[in-house]
């Protein structure tokens, strides 16, 4: 966790993202125009959010297997940084939507908000909001860790089918949704050429690593500040 190489890797990847993301050629498409470059930033927020939530889920499972309090701290902070990424994804999405969906195609904001992607993201954020409310309602730390791990696992296991199901129930403006041409609801592969892909995947990794870094900082801080708890646990 304290190794430095992946932090440097994250930095290099993000520098690469910004330099190549702005300077390389992108496919020339109507309506999207230059905003297609938002893919390197906005979409990466969602990918990063999902990856961080997956990590949080894994630590919740680990907590229930051994009741090690460290794993609970890990799960909590990864979920928190995941939420941060999700909120950033929402904010950047609002800016992007304004120029691509709302004006040019005569869509009202109300119909845009019923986007399956947005519903999925909203469910994810609501679930983790509920997770933190649940955490806040306990005073006993062991109980808090245990019950919130149970909720984290349950909600996460329900989240994935819903992300898969909802796009098939609600019509979509989002590129790549069923109903538009390709089958993958996450990305329209046709809009991305190979140069874009060469920037996009490193960008996802770079942003995710940055998220992991921030999360580990918060984890280390709370391990220090809750040092007393660990010492008591060792004594038992």
């Amino acid at each position: 966790m304290n190794k430095i190489w992946w932090k440097i890797l994250s930095f290099i990847l993000l520098v690469y993202t910004i330099v190549c993301g702005f300077l390389l050629e992108v496919p020339r498409l109507d309506i999207l125009n230059e905003t297609i470059r938002n893919l390197y930033f906005h979409v990466c927020m969602w990918f990063g959010m999902m990856i961080l939530f997956i990590i949080s889920f894994i630590y919740s499972v680990k907590y229930l297997r051994g009741f090690n309090y460290r794993n609970d701290i890990f799960a909590r902070h990864f979920a928190a940084v995941g939420c941060l990424f999700g909120i950033l994804g929402y904010l950047t999405g609002i800016i992007w939507v304004k120029v691509t969906w709302v004006t040019d195609q005569g869509q009202s904001l109300g119909s845009v908000l019923k986007e399956p992607k947005l519903i999925g993201a909203a469910i994810a954020l609501l679930i983790y909001g509920a997770y933190f409310v649940l955490r806040g309602s306990f005073t006993d730390i062991d109980k808090r860790a245990r019950i919130s791990a149970v909720y984290n696992i349950f909600a996460f296991a329900m989240l994935f089918p819903s992300i898969w199901i909802i796009p098939r129930l609600v019509g979509s403006l989002h590129p790549g949704a069923p109903g538009s041409d390709s089958g993958n609801p996450a990305l329209d592969k046709n809009d991305m050429d190979s140069t874009m892909r060469m920037v996009f995947y490193p960008a996802v990794i770079g942003w995710t690593l940055l998220g992991v870094w921030i999360a580990t900082l918060k984890i280390r801080l709370s391990i220090i500040s809750e040092k007393n708890i660990f010492e008591i646990k060792k004594m038992n």
Binding site: N2, K7, F11, L14, V15, I18, V19, F22, L23, L210, W213, I214, L217, R220, L221, I224, K227
Partner: peptide, 29 residues
Amino acid sequence: VAVCLTILVGLFLYVFIIDRKISKIEKNK
């Protein structure tokens, strides 16, 4: 590109300094 890079470098420097500080506190423990 230069503006964005400056912001990125600044951000990373900030996070890195926090990282160093936490490492120091961990060692003192």
